[in-house]
Design a binder for these strands. Structure first.
Lengths: 140, 140
DNA sequence: ACCACTATTGCGGCTCTTTGCGATAAGCTC
DNA sequence: GAGCTTATCGCAAAGAGCCGCAATAGTGGT
C-alpha cells in the first residue's frame, strides 16, 4: 500500500507541503532536525511555515513513516522509520554520535518488560555518556 | 565541607538567589522543572529572573549538588544529587512515571563500556515506552 | 464542473530555555 | 569601611517547538 492510500485510509490528505516534507526526509541520510527540513524545503518553496513542517512530521510519524529521537542537545531529530532501528550514543563531552544495533539494548528491554510490564522504546532517546576518545584523554 | 565552602573553592559566590534555588530544590521532593522552582521562589521574591534559576541550577550541577534528567516531554527535571540514583520509566501513553533501581540498567552500561568504550549515564534520560496499565488496556 | 465538508496551511502569538550585555553586588585587600 | 575585581543578576532577545484561528484547498458526491 502506497503512502497516498495510507494517508487516505487515516482520513489524511496528500498535500504539496506534506509531500515536500516526506521527500526532504527521504533525501536526508540521517537524523535531521525539523529546522533542517524546513530550510531545505524553503530553498525551492520559500513560503512553507515551520509549524507546517512540525505538524507534518507528527502526522507522518502517526502513520509510521518517520520516527524521532531525542538527542541530548534537546533538539529532536527525525528520520525515516524504514531505516533499521538502532540505538544512539551521544558523548556529552565532544558531542560525537554513534549508532549501536538495537539488539544490544534488547536484554534491558526484555527485563523491563518481564519485571515491570513496561514496553520500552530504547531507540527513542539517545544514551548520553562519555565516548571512548574523551574517556581515554581525560583519564590520563 | 559545606556548600558555601564548596562554592568558594570553585571561585563561586553564595548569593541570595543561589540560596533560594538550593532551598527550593531541597524542599521539592522529586524531579521539578526549572520553571517550578522559579514559580515557587517568585511567591516570596517576585523579582527573580528565570534565567537566574537556570544558571544557578547549572552552577549547582557543576558542584555535584543537583542533577537533571530529560523526560520525554522535552522538559528537563531537576533534583538533588544526594538522592539515590535511579532510572526513569515514562509512559508515552498516559504519562505515568516510574523509578527503577540503577542496578537494573547496569548490565547494559557494562556492555556499552566493554564493547564500545562508552561510559553511559543511563539515568540521564528517561526511558520511554508503554507502561503496564496502558499495555493491557490496548491489547484487549 | 460545482458544491460541501473538513483536513491542512500560514500567521500571530505563546512557552520553555538559553545567551549577550550592561548593571549590581560578593568578597578580597588595604 | 572604601575601593577593586569579577561573579552574578536582571533584562531583552533569540531559538525551538506548539497552538488557536481564519483562510485555503483536497476530495468525494452530484
Amino acid at each position: 500500500m502506497g503512502i497516498d492510500e495510507r494517508l487516505h485510509a487515516s482520513g489524511m490528505r496528500m498535500t504539496v507541503q506534506r509531500r515536500l516534507v516526506l521527500e526532504a526526509l527521504q533525501r536526508a541520510r540521517h537524523h535531521v532536525t525539523a529546522d533542517d527540513i524546513a530550510t531545505r524545503i524553503r530553498a525551492r518553496h520559500p513560503q512553507i511555515d515551520p509549524s507546517t513542517v512540525y505538524r507534518n512530521l507528527e502526522a507522518l510519524e502517526e502513520l509510521g513513516y518517520v520516527t524521532h529521537t531525542h538527542f541530548d542537545d534537546r533538539v529532536t531529530r527525525w528520520h525515516r522509520a524504514e531505516a533499521e532501528r538502532h540505538g544512539h550514543l551521544v558523548c556529552r563531552s565532544c558531542g560525537a554520535e554513534q549508532e549501536v544495533p538495537i539488539g544490544l539494548l534488547e536484554p534491558l528491554a526484555r527485563r523491563l518488560r518481564e519485571e515491570h510490564g513496561f514496553r520500552a522504546d530504547l531507540a527513542h532517546s539517545a544514551i548520553v555518556g562519555i565516548c571512548k576518545d574523551c574517556s581515554t584523554v581525560s583519564s590520563e
